[in-house]
Amino acid sequence: MRRPFRRALGRIALYLLVAVIVVYTVFPFYWAVVSSLKSGQALFGTELWPRDPQWSNYTALFSQQPFARNILNSVFVAGSVVLVSLALGAGAAYALGRVRFRGRVPLLMVILSVSMFPQVAVLSGMFELIRFLGLYNNLLGLTLSYLIFTLPFTVWVLTTFMRELPQELEEAAMVDGATPFVTVTRVFLPLMAPAMATAGLLAFIAAWNEFLFALTFTLTNEMRTVPVAIALISGASAFELPWGRIMAASVIVTVPLILLVLVFQRRIVSGLTAGAVKG
């Protein structure tokens, strides 16, 4: 009699804990959605559900500032960074994952440490470089600078996946007289598609979220990416921030990410663990 009772109690405690975890992780975003649908005085109340949902915050966002342009900027920068990283990373991953050569391990360590060092450490050098190339206040400047964190990461994830592929594949290609270039493009590239999707997705999210470089290397409203636009939204005075509009902007940039994450859940988790747990 007592044992089942205790087990049931344990079960209830477990589900209570789960409920607390879910509320803790999801509530802030839920609150942002609710706040974005409130306008006027309702915004300053605390109802958990907007009694009279309004879209005015969303329309204001697009009519009073170039937010559509900011979104396009973010898409362009993140997209181009992903393409360049994958193109450069795939070849490098073949070399690092399949070929044994002297200096391979130190090289992997250097790449790992680059992905870990603070972005601010290259800020002045990068500023000089970007100005020298004439890319200040230009989206291409952001594409270039973002490679510092997407490239090492992409190489690392692709190398991990590349190593798991069976040795026989390559031997068969070699026996058939394929050059290394053909081996990579015809044999490995198609097999790497899932890994490239994972690495690309993670690189996209990282670039989409980046703030420091975007804040420093752009100047005008029209060139800003979404995070910078959201951080710098201001109202009539410094003390009257338009919170409804800020929340609306937050929801707009987060919803696509959340959808991506939900759809590719498994892939993202495996990519993250490949990047961190395994090494």
């Binding site: 992780t25 999801v26 802030p28 975003f29 942002a32 999210i205 989409w208 979220n209 703030f211 979404v226 995070p227 910078v228 959201i230 951080a231 937050s250 940039v253 987060t254 990410l257 959340i258 991506l260 994450v261 939900l262 859940q265 993202i268 988790v269």
Partner: peptide, 10 residues
């Protein structure tokens, strides 16, 4: 994964 996916600024 939701908090992880939300941009830091947001």
């Amino acid at each position: 994964l939701i908090p992880w996916a939300i941009p830091t600024v947001v």
